[in-house]
């Protein structure tokens, strides 16, 4: 039977060839460990592992890419599904109503500044765990790979929108834009939490 130390060696070897997400490594580690256990050749473990990794390196990297793509698609499907749930549709109308009410009492630029600050805070909250894991070199799950692009999509146009909005005549259009961005960001935060909980339940019991 393969020891805990040998399992760690397999895990490290996978990390080394670019299989970075923990959920993918769990499955590949078990596959390699079982394959090496079944190998009846009387050779040292390290030698067998090295041989396996060299022979299957390209295939493992290909699997890694495919896994990441599949979990990215799943994460976006979940995000889309959440968008069309009653609670998030209600949230959209509530957000728009709030922005509209603010615009009745404040200048458009002040309203958009408030909305932009809201976007920044939400996006920071959404990105926090990912950035923290990256800095602390903590393991993260493969779905985070795909969802990180949503932040970029929502924040960058919003920065430029602060100056573009002066050329847009309609107040409603500007408010609608900011409402949609805040709404998508909130749904992303919730989706990330849901997926984290799902993965935690699966792998940590």
């Amino acid at each position: 039977m393969i020891t805990t130390n040998q399992i760690q060696l397999i895990d490290q070897a996978l990390k080394k060839i670019g299989v970075s997400y923990i959920d993918i490594r769990y499955e590949m580690t078990d596959h390699i460990a079982t394959a090496l256990e079944s190998d009846k050749k009387d050779r040292p473990f390290e030698h067998n592992l090295k041989g396996y990794i060299i022979t299957h390196k390209k295939e493992l990297q290909k699997i890694n890419k495919k896994f990441m793509f599949i979990s990215m698609v799943n994460a976006y499907k979940k995000l889309l599904y959440n968008m069309f749930t009653i609670r998030f549709l209600a949230l959209f109308f509530l957000l728009y109503l709030n922005a509209f009410l603010l615009s009745l009492f404040m200048e458009r630029e002040s309203v958009t500044r408030i909305l932009f600050i809201a976007i920044t805070v939400i996006v920071c909250a959404a990105s926090f765990s990912g950035i923290y894991n990256l800095i602390k070199r903590k393991d993260s799950n493969s779905f985070t790979h795909g969802l990180s692009f949503v932040n970029v999509i929502t924040v960058y146009p919003s920065i430029f929108m602060m100056s573009w909005q002066r050329e847009i005549a309609s107040d409603n259009l500007v408010l609608l834009y900011y409402t949609v961005v805040i709404w998508v960001s909130v749904i992303m935060v919730v989706t990330v939490r849901q997926l984290n909980a799902q993965y935690k339940l699966r792998y940590n019991g």
Binding site: I2, T3, I7, Y26, E27, T29, D30, Y203
Partner: peptide
């Protein structure tokens, strides 16, 4: 999917 600890690793 069901994940279980088998020997000293997780199995899916």
């Amino acid at each position: 999917v069901e994940v279980e600890k088998v020997d000293n690793r997780l199995r899916k």
